[in-house]
Design a protein around this nucleic acid. Structure first.
Length: 160
DNA sequence: GCCAACGTTGGC
DNA sequence: GCCAACGTTGGC
C-alpha cells in the first residue's frame, strides 16, 4: 500500500464536501499538473491511503484520511466544456489528465495544522514533500514512517 | 492583497 | 533549446 497527501482548497472541495457525497466517495478531478498527473496515472492503487490537506484557507493542514477506491483513469472534466477544468487540447483517444476516486475514511476531530507539521521539519518530517520550499504539487507521496508519525500527531492533537 | 516560487508558453 | 514573460499556487 502506498501513502499520499492530496491538497484541495476547502472553498472548492473540502473534506466536508466528501463527507456529504454519495457513499462519501468522489472523483479527485481537476489536477492539471504533469508531475501530479503521472502519480495519479501510474502510482495510485486502489487501497492506497492519503491525507486530505486543505490549502489556501484560514487553517492550512491535514483534516483527515481518505482511501483510493479506484486507481487512475481519465478525468472526465477535461472533456466537459462547462467545466472550469475543460481542456480543449486533450484528445479523448489519448486523454491528457487523470483522476482517482477516493472515499472518506477518517475525519480528524482536530486538524494537524501546517504549523504543527513544520515543528518537525528538522526531525521526523524532514523529507516530507509538503514542507519542501516552494512545493506546489497538489498530490505527493508520503513515506510510511512519515505517515505513522503524522497519525500520531493527529491522535495527540485530539486529546489536547 | 502581497509576494515568492514554480510551471507553462511562445518567440527566436 | 533558450529564456523572458506570464499565470498559478499558496502561505501569510
Amino acid at each position: 500500500m502506498n501513502y499520499w497527501l492530496m491538497k484541495s482548497e476547502p472553498q472548492t472541495f473540502g473534506i466536508d464536501h466528501l463527507a456529504r457525497a454519495a457513499r462519501q466517495t468522489a472523483g479527485w478531478d481537476g489536477v492539471r499538473n504533469y508531475q501530479a498527473r503521472n502519480m495519479l496515472r501510474d502510482g495510485f492503487r486502489a487501497g492506497d491511503h492519503a491525507f486530505f490537506y486543505h490549502s489556501s484557507c484560514p487553517e492550512p493542514g491535514i483534516y483527515g484520511v481518505i482511501e483510493v477506491v479506484r486507481a487512475g483513469h481519465p478525468d472526465p472534466t477535461q472533456f466537459d466544456r462547462g467545466s472550469a477544468h475543460y481542456d480543449a487540447d486533450s484528445d479523448p483517444s489519448d486523454p491528457r489528465w487523470y483522476q482517482v476516486e477516493v472515499r472518506l475514511l477518517t475525519r480528524f476531530s482536530h486538524p494537524v495544522t501546517l504549523a504543527t507539521l513544520r515543528e518537525h521539519a528538522q526531525g521526523a518530517l524532514r523529507d516530507l514533500a509538503l514542507l519542501r520550499r516552494g512545493n506546489r504539487l497538489s498530490v505527493m507521496p508520503v513515506g510510511a514512517g512519515e505517515w505513522k508519525f503524522i497519525l500520531r500527531l493527529a491522535r495527540d492533537s485530539r486529546s489536547s
